[in-house]
Design a protein around this nucleic acid. Structure first.
Lengths: 241, 241
DNA sequence: TCAATAGTGTCTTTCAGACAATATGAC
DNA sequence: GTCATATTGTCTGAAAGACACTATTGA
């Protein structure tokens, strides 16, 4: 069979097409732990189960635009660090019909996380318990406010687990950590974010050295306020030239 | 608007659905350089331009299965290291209609690369020129046998560039490098693969130490044959317990 | 024996972890 | 001055780069 024949034999009009959605892991740090925003499903399938916010991709809408739209519609947030995670396409992941979903990681700082909760009261902030150390990978648990584990809809537990794995893996060599912080922050806050994501305590002098050596931090000369002890210097994230 | 209303308003039957394809970066090492297998398009759009082998995802076929099917149909290979890369969904990436493609990286060792070329004479082995150092990222060039740069169809140049970036990034901390080697190999061959992917020469003692310390290598006690000098020991890849 | 590459020893440098000393703002 | 934390200094150990040395095989 020649290549031309092959292409001809794949006339897309002959094919039934899957639906395509985007699902967002809206992640922030809350009480020193990673937390994700979930929505309760009202309908079959998985009625009354918690799920990642998502939506169908429009026929004239790029994947990025769909992710941004969902971010805005479900969380009322105009922009956040958005990063494509993985595409899930098991045939039976949705019992109604064939749905392929492109999963995204959205990183929210504390203010954005709170704003989302305020904008949509249906959102539940679920603490994420990551039982594995390092980058082993494996299942995670999403915890309700009362501490009980939530049984997520669809394959959303897998998506959440992958999000945590990806975030841990990228934290040290990329600048994603700053997406979880406000514009001005102290080195202690930066370290707290890293420790929450990694689920481990870090050595303070080494952390400072490493961060400062990366050239990502611009000292502002101003200091935090409202502490009853020596205030720390405020830094700003600056992308490398 | 409640969540129930939201879900109701997204009845998928109301939506026109995109086509979904998989595209494969069939990558191997050839003449000490990375090389990818391409197919010439026969039809509009991008007629006569070179493209990554791909195909539509069946309505009852998982994404993984579709990638494996394309690997088999286009390259005659039963199995290879297959890894999802990224999903490309720009609205106008295919001028005919809306097509979202899930890009995959398929790593072929020398024998599999040759077998693919033998199985499908339409395949062109294009050398990949990576002009950037380290993990900067950026555009790459696919070179025809005569050394001229190929102007790839669709956004396939972007896919290829992402594949090289991903491979470079994973090479040192994961075991992907072994997918490019035969079952038995010498440390020199392993280093050659790493150097080809990284586009840099590596320090021999340090490389050996690092690789042996990872615990991935099992010495076989046998040695390569046919050299006119001291033959090197053959190793086998063994996954960590 | 020679040629050519395999494989090793060791010095140096770099960088993270550990630990402790010093600095400083609020009170 | 005291408290509590910020910030810095320094020692130590692990690992990479550099370079040269020794080992081994075929011819």
């Amino acid at each position: 069979m020649t290549e031309t024949d092959l292409l001809k034999s794949y006339d897309p009009a002959d094919y039934e097409r899957p639906s395509v959605t985007v699902d967002l892991v809206l992640l922030g740090i809350r009480n020193g732990r990673p937390a994700a925003l979930l929505l309760k499903r009202g309908e079959h399938p998985f009625a009354d189960r918690w799920a990642l916010p998502g939506g169908f991709v429009g026929i004239a809408e790029s994947l990025d635009a769909a992710a941004e739209r969902v971010l805005h519609e479900k969380a009322g947030i105009a922009d956040a660090h958005l990063e494509q995670l993985y595409t899930f396409g098991a045939v039976d992941r949705d019992p109604r019909m064939r749905v392929i979903t492109v999963a995204w990681l959205a990183l929210l700082n504390e203010a954005a996380f709170a704003a989302a909760l305020a904008a949509n009261s249906a959102l539940l902030p679920a603490a994420i318990d990551v039982p594995w150390a390092g980058e082993t990978g494996g299942p995670i648990a999403a915890l309700a406010p009362d501490g009980s584990a939530l049984d997520l809809a669809f394959d959303h537990a897998d998506i959440l687990a992958l999000a945590m794995l990806r975030l841990r893996g990228k934290l040290d060599y990329s600048d994603v950590g700053f997406a979880l912080l406000p514009d001005l922050f102290t080195l202690r806050q930066l370290q707290d974010v890293h420790e929450a994501i990694l689920g481990a305590t870090l050595n303070k002098p080494a952390f400072r050295r490493r961060m400062l050596d990366k050239g990502w931090l611009a000292a502002t000369g101003t200091r935090e306020e409202g502490t009853s002890f020596r205030p720390a210097e405020l830094y700003r994230f600056q992308r490398l030239l």
